[in-house]
Design a protein around this nucleic acid. Structure first.
Lengths: 218, 218
DNA sequence: ATTATCTATAGATCTATAGATAATGC
DNA sequence: ATTATCTATAGATCTATAGATAATGC
């Protein structure tokens, strides 16, 4: 690091190649996301993405090997954020003194909050996933990691669980809470009480069910 | 109807224009479904669909106005079957003397059975839906109709429900059972106890939860 | 006369590359 | 010297249509 700190850190000059490169790449990812969400995955052609990002088609291929690499980068920006969230939530230090019910409540809060933010990116990722089994599998793997971390935290408190098979019960509850939250955040609703009630009522009902399923002592 | 019954009913001659037409249309829908499932929605071009169905591109456009019409026909074949199933299941005569628990068990059985059959068609429909908001909305509407019919059957037995707000509880349980079954039949699993256990264990756990949520008397 | 089918093709994409140009970076 | 960008375009699709051909149906 022999670079002049005045220049590199205080940003008197800011159009370094590196930062221009990063800006262009972000602009391309943003443009791809927006087009995918607005017109579906088929509407997001390289030509249109470049146009929207304000660069030429040639520039796209300078930054990404091919269209698939660009799409995967869009997807990865979402999954990286998800992995980060998982890592933070899984930190045992964060949950010292917490009971199973607190863990479940924290999980619900986390997912409800996550689904309320970054919606365009997530929608784009969902559309890409729908057309690509590899991405589907990758997303499932990330969710799996998060769920297994939660499972570990819960089973470290297994003495609270009255169900005769705590391992099965804990897994079942985690799956089911996930399904419940997915149903709540799905924009295409059917009946739907899960989506119609407010967050507090949803949380109360979900926690009540989970406590029953695990036979948590009171 | 002045047609000769010997001909039209006993099929001595079978290559009428009408039946050829139907055969070609079915072949096109089958080919489209297969290609969509095998290569994703983008892989199913008119050229490839025609080739797979063993007809020319021109023939495709004789039977379908454009590509969208063909895709919608693929989708409709699936939703028509679903609507039929809904209509059969919603018949009150079928449920005479049944209790709420029987209704819920019947619903679970129906959906588990449905997800085990006609998988290629449903997979294709799901991929088409993913790229088309109109189809998503249509599917949601069909599920909604089925769920509302179930809701009606349950609320006709509201005296069995101990929950202080039977209407809310019934809607919540229907949503939740739906989410549970979706999670079970999703091929991309996370933890997952819901998918790992056998049908009997799944049903028992689901029914137990529903009975608790509704506060069904015993 | 109508219907089902085919062949051939126009016209509009779309992906990816080659090669030139201008700026940064050592 | 390397990096970022542009222009121009080759080559491969893909959708949809026009017009010919052969069979059914009244």
């Amino acid at each position: 690091m022999t670079t002049n700190r005045w220049i590199s850190d205080l940003h008197w000059r800011r159009d370094s190649q590196q930062s221009r490169s990063e800006q262009t790449q972000s602009a391309l990812l943003d443009a791809a996301e927006a087009l995918i969400v607005e017109q579906g995955a088929e509407g997001a052609s390289i030509t249109r993405i470049a146009e929207r990002a304000g660069v030429s088609v040639g520039a796209v291929y300078h930054h990404f090997k091919d269209k698939k690499a660009l799409c995967y980068a869009v997807f990865q920006r979402v999954t990286d954020a998800l992995s980060d969230l998982n890592r933070q939530a899984a930190d045992p230090a964060r949950w010292q003194g917490a009971r199973v019910r607190d863990l479940l409540e924290g999980y619900i809060d986390l997912r409800l909050h996550a689904s309320a933010t970054g919606n365009v990116s997530k929608h784009a990722a969902a559309l890409l996933m729908a057309n690509d089994a590899e991405l589907k599998a990758h997303m499932a793997e990330i969710k799996r990691e998060g769920n297994l971390a939660l499972l570990g935290l819960i089973l470290a408190r297994r003495e609270e669980i009255g169900h005769p098979d705590p391992d099965f019960a804990a897994r079942f509850v985690i799956d089911q809470l996930g399904a419940m939250i997915t149903a709540r955040t799905d924009p295409y609703q059917t009946v739907s009480a899960i989506a119609a009630c407010d967050d507090a009522a949803f949380k109360a009902e979900a926690l009540d069910w989970a406590a029953h399923a695990l036979r948590l002592g009171e």
